[in-house]
Design a protein around this nucleic acid. Structure first.
Length: 257
DNA sequence: AACTAGAGCAACCGCATCGCG
DNA sequence: ACGCGATGCGGTTGCTCTAGT
């Protein structure tokens, strides 16, 4: 019994992709678009399972991928996002145009971990290795640290946010704040329109309908954060995209907001 | 030149989540 | 509400390349 395999593996190629396979996949997707990965291999004439095709496309063949070395700005952004999100590579990748989750994950494991360790920072907790106190001040400007806040969809998970504001987060997947401090995980939703900013007042955004009894937490969020119009994306707040359009804010000059 | 160890990265695997009937 | 297939995600593996001896 048990789950049926995602594909018939007996006659499938495995291992590195050949140029011919790449070409077949690219040609097929150009013609038909992405989607239906399970049936794609057969339709494209590939002896690969759908998962493998998807991975190859996502991580290597997509035309919008940015190849080459990570910039210093990207490094810092990854570190900051990891301190907020933990090993949520796909979410982190969503904030780095042209980078894939796999690429970022590999880069983290091979470069950034070492970089943080050399700074005396534990890459898992983002805390200084020799001190129990706070955390990676070297990587975040003070004004940003003081005002780091998260914006929640529908429900607010208050305590960790307060911790964000007071020092730096405990929100990573390996964080230490216990679940009982803010209820069940299912009761709150982190809106990944993460924002970092000065002490603007900020209202929790509600991308999904609020169907809960969280009026109090909502009010709490409003009192704490003010209106959403003040929110600026993380990239802009930490000073990236100084001279170019930010894809998150759609604003060409971040100094104006 | 040959060998070895380590780094880097593409790809795989298994589980989780989503979405549709 | 439930079951099941499809897709997505994160951890891990293993191959390739390169630097050191």
């Amino acid at each position: 019994m048990g789950r049926s395999p995602c594909c018939e593996k007996a006659h499938m190629n495995k291992g590195a992709w050949t140029k011919e396979e790449d070409q077949l996949l690219v040609d097929y997707i150009r013609k038909h678009g992405e989607g239906c990965w399970r049936s794609l291999p057969r339709a494209a004439g590939l002896q690969r399972c759908g998962k493998s095709c998807r991975l190859r496309w996502m991580n290597y063949l997509r035309p919008d991928l940015k190849r080459g070395n990570f910039t210093e700005e990207e490094d810092e952004l990854i570190i900051k996002l990891h301190s907020l999100l933990g090993n949520k590579w796909s979410l982190i990748a969503g904030r780095l145009p042209g980078r894939t989750d796999n690429e970022i994950k590999n880069y983290w494991n091979t470069h950034i971990k070492r970089k943080l360790l050399s700074r005396g920072i534990d890459p898992n907790t983002h805390r200084l290795i020799n001190e129990s106190a706070v955390v990676s001040p070297s990587t975040l400007q003070n004004d940003v640290v003081e005002t780091l806040h998260l914006d929640f969809a529908g429900k607010v998970k208050p305590e960790p946010v307060r911790e964000e504001i007071g020092g730096i987060n405990n929100c990573t997947s390996s964080g230490t704040t216990s679940e009982k401090d803010y209820g069940n995980e299912e009761d709150w939703v982190l809106n990944l329109e993460l924002s970092v900013g000065p002490s603007y007042r900020y209202e929790s955004t509600r991308k999904v309908s609020v169907v809960d009894s969280a009026e109090s937490t909502r009010r709490w969020g409003s009192e704490l954060f003010g209106t959403q119009s003040d929110a600026v994306c993380l990239c802009c707040r930490i000073g990236l995209f100084h001279n170019e359009s930010c894809r998150n804010c759609r604003v060409s000059d971040v100094r104006t907001h």
